[in-house]
C-alpha cells in the first residue's frame, strides 16, 4: 500500500492530536506525522521548509502531503493560517492538500471553507473519513 510522505496535524487539543495520530499510524497512510498546537508554529515550520532553512538530514523536517487543520485555536487560528499559507510559493503549495478538521458545523465556517475550496471534515476523524479524503485528493489511493 502506498503511503503519503507526511501529514501535519494542527490542533490545540493534544488529546485530539493524539487520537488522530494514533488513527493515522494504525491506518499506515503516512511515513511521517507531526503535530502543532497552533497555526503560527505550523506556519513557521512550513515557511522554513519552503525557504530551505532546515537540516535535510533530520527526520524532524519534511514537506507534508496533507495538512489537517483545526479552526478554533489560540495564537493563530485555522483561517489566519490559511491566508498566510496562500502567500507561500505556488510551487511549494501545489502538492500540499489542506483539509479543515473541526467540531464546528457553523454555516459561517463551512461557507468560508467552501469559499477557499478546501476539504472540510467534522470531528471525530474516522477511518472512513481519512479514506474518503485520500481517495478524493490522491490518485494513488484510488482503488
Amino acid at each position: 500500500m502506498k503511503k503519503l510522505k507526511g501529514i501535519l496535524l494542527i490542533d490545540d487539543d493534544d488529546t485530539n492530536n493524539f487520537l488522530n495520530h494514533r488513527l493515522l499510524t494504525r491506518m499506515q497512510v503516512a511515513e511521517k506525522i507531526r503535530e502543532f498546537r497552533n497555526g503560527k508554529q505550523a506556519f513557521d515550520y512550513l515557511y522554513n521548509i519552503s525557504q530551505g532553512h532546515y537540516d535535510t538530514a533530520s527526520s524532524e523536517y519534511f514537506k507534508p502531503a496533507l495538512i489537517l487543520l483545526d479552526i478554533n485555536m489560540p495564537v493563530m487560528d485555522g483561517f489566519e493560517f490559511l491566508s498566510l499559507f496562500e502567500k507561500l510559493d505556488e510551487s511549494f503549495r501545489k502538492d500540499v492538500v489542506l483539509a479543515l478538521l473541526t467540531t464546528s458545523e457553523h454555516s459561517q465556517d463551512t461557507e468560508r471553507a467552501a469559499a477557499s475550496s478546501i476539504a472540510y471534515l467534522t470531528k471525530p476523524l474516522t477511518t472512513e473519513k481519512v479514506q474518503g479524503l485520500l481517495e478524493e485528493h490522491f490518485p494513488e489511493f484510488r482503488s
Partner: peptide, 17 residues
Amino acid sequence: SRDLKGPVLNVAGLVEA
C-alpha cells in the same frame, strides 16, 4: 456547545481506543 464538543469527542475516541 462548540467548546464542549471537542472534549466529548475526545472521550468517545479514547473510549474506543
